[in-house]
Nucleic acid binder design. Sequence first.
DNA 1: CTAATTTCTTGATTTGGATCAAGTGCTACT
DNA 2: AGTAGCACTTGATCCAAATCAAGAAATTAG
Lengths: 189, 189
Amino acid sequence: MKEKLLKSFQGFASFSEQELSLIISKTKLRNFRKKENLLKVGETCSAFYFIVEGAIRQYRTNKDLDEITLNLYLENSWVLEHQSFTSQKPSTTTIQAFEDCTVYELGMHAVHELIGQSPSFFQLGKILEQPLQGVELYQNLTTPEEKYRAILKHNPKLIQKFPLKHIASYLKITPETLSRVRNKLSKSS
Amino acid sequence: MKEKLLKSFQGFASFSEQELSLIISKTKLRNFRKKENLLKVGETCSAFYFIVEGAIRQYRTNKDLDEITLNLYLENSWVLEHQSFTSQKPSTTTIQAFEDCTVYELGMHAVHELIGQSPSFFQLGKILEQPLQGVELYQNLTTPEEKYRAILKHNPKLIQKFPLKHIASYLKITPETLSRVRNKLSKSS
DNA sequence: CTAATTTCTTGATTTGGATCAAGTGCTACT
DNA sequence: AGTAGCACTTGATCCAAATCAAGAAATTAG
């Protein structure tokens, strides 16, 4: 069960076995039901979540109450509200279980404790660097087709898991446009 | 001369006088001429720069060799390539002096040394949190007018200092569109 | 000081993607 | 199984901003 989590930590830095088990002892296994929120607007993000199983969506609600999808996550990903976490101010976005999820939670205070014990845990800060997602990934892509090709290439599993409307919102295009692009590409190949 | 820099550090955390002078002893005063690069594509960002005087532009070059402005900075700002710095991988963007600049440079190694001496210098990591700029600031704004109003409200000095074409690129609109928006707003007020 | 170059403005035209609309297909719930 | 509510597709229309173009204004270079 903890293998995935271990692997993820090992990817960040060369922690010793002792260090790894110390980190893991600070994590807490949690379950979220579909539609349940890991973080609500107004709450301050004070933990990292590692997805063992399930899928998670992060979104913002605009003035017309449309949900704008900001990030989509699958298993083996770290999830947090970067802005809120680093500033310790209330989040303006919601992080929600898109389906039933099993996650490990690593609280900010636990991380601070660890760093207090040994500076090597400073490496955990690398979890914060993860989110090279969403806007950042697609920032230099302009047309719907380019965006769809990019997600198809780099994150095909997202397309399989999430419905078209969320993918469309994530790429900042309408569902109609995405439907047409997808149709066009499937014909040309 | 160091007053601005001191103030900036004091804004991050309550460093003691000793700590402050220790940090400052690690900084190096540097000058860049107009058009000179602080960081080129392919180089890895390994320092923070604090602008004492001058203006700096960060841009990406696309396949048509257009320069896409990503960030604009004025004095009292910290400048770095966030992505490259945290990952220690080559930058895909250029950071260039838009006019002659005087900056303080704080190298990554110096920061690591400081943190080694005292965990309180961990607070310097807050410099990384600064760049709530560009895309992030305008990500939920859709129309050119909204974007221009926002920059006018939050960063009027940018408009005064940088030419229209850079502002337009920064807002991801064409110079023609920005010219029209600006014209319209100046009439309606 | 003048020429050359760049920046900005203004108008005409085009166009890609949004919006609107209607129909079909899925899924889930009782 | 039936129906209610989403999700997706497809076509028609619209529109905001891009593009194209040409001239004016400002800046820079010689």
